[in-house]
Design a protein around this nucleic acid. Sequence first.
DNA 1: CTACATGCAAACCGTTTGCACCCTA
DNA 2: TAGGGTGCAAACGGTTTGCATGTAG
Lengths: 147, 147
Amino acid sequence: MDSKVTRDHLDCLRQSGLKNTRQRKAILDILSIGEQPYAAEDVYLALKQQHVDINLSTVYRSLETMCDKGVVRKVSVSGDNRMLYEMNVHSHQHYLVCVNCKKICPVGHCPLEAFEKAVARETQYTIMGHRLDIYGLCPDCQKESGK
Amino acid sequence: MDSKVTRDHLDCLRQSGLKNTRQRKAILDILSIGEQPYAAEDVYLALKQQHVDINLSTVYRSLETMCDKGVVRKVSVSGDNRMLYEMNVHSHQHYLVCVNCKKICPVGHCPLEAFEKAVARETQYTIMGHRLDIYGLCPDCQKESGK
DNA sequence: CTACATGCAAACCGTTTGCACCCTA
DNA sequence: TAGGGTGCAAACGGTTTGCATGTAG
């Protein structure tokens, strides 16, 4: 399973015409854990913890070039001034962000296709996409604030 | 009409327990022009152009305290790493952002009440709000890119 | 008169960049 | 071995903060 994932990462990089470096593979390994998006620094710290030696600029630069090639994608969520990065799986995704603990959790389905069409009609814009995030209190933080 | 607006600003500040300073009134005057949200620096430059003497930190600090009191609100939109500020009128608002010229235009109606309820049910979060912005090409930029 | 506001300059923090060296293809 | 990738340190841009001074209530 581990080798399967690594294999995929090699393919991703090769297909995008990117060189296959230790650092890039390590970054993709981190992004593949869980479904959350990670800030550049999160990736950096996670790698440090695994004793993977890497420079923070390299993390930024790699994420950026992998974005350009469509291997990863950027997302930014309310209440976090940092850019977050995630694997660019094709399914379109939105997040539920806890305003207290900042935990980020993906929500299933996107209700906006019809709305986009209506907006396009009304405004004459060519709609290219949207960004939606929902914020609230997660169950744990509800309990905590109930105390 | 000008005096009407100024009057409102005095009321806003008074009701929030904020002191009524030259700087705060000037900031609110700027935010009341048009329906766009402004970055702190936009406000600062607009004031400078009107020969209103103010410090950029004061702009940031005033916007922040007026946010706390609910007089203004923050919004952040995709593709701009700056925070934007607007009058906190109660109607909930979303924006259409041109990816080319960065023009921001408000869209009428918000289609997400039902969706929020569904998400709350599924996830057990207490939903507090959401952020939605739509991006695309405005009519002017469509023409330009057609050339 | 006192607490809150402001100006100024320096710090901060996420991100980007220039440059020399390194290493994959 | 050539051209992309990396490390390091310094710059950058938006925002925040400490401190002395100013001013609204």
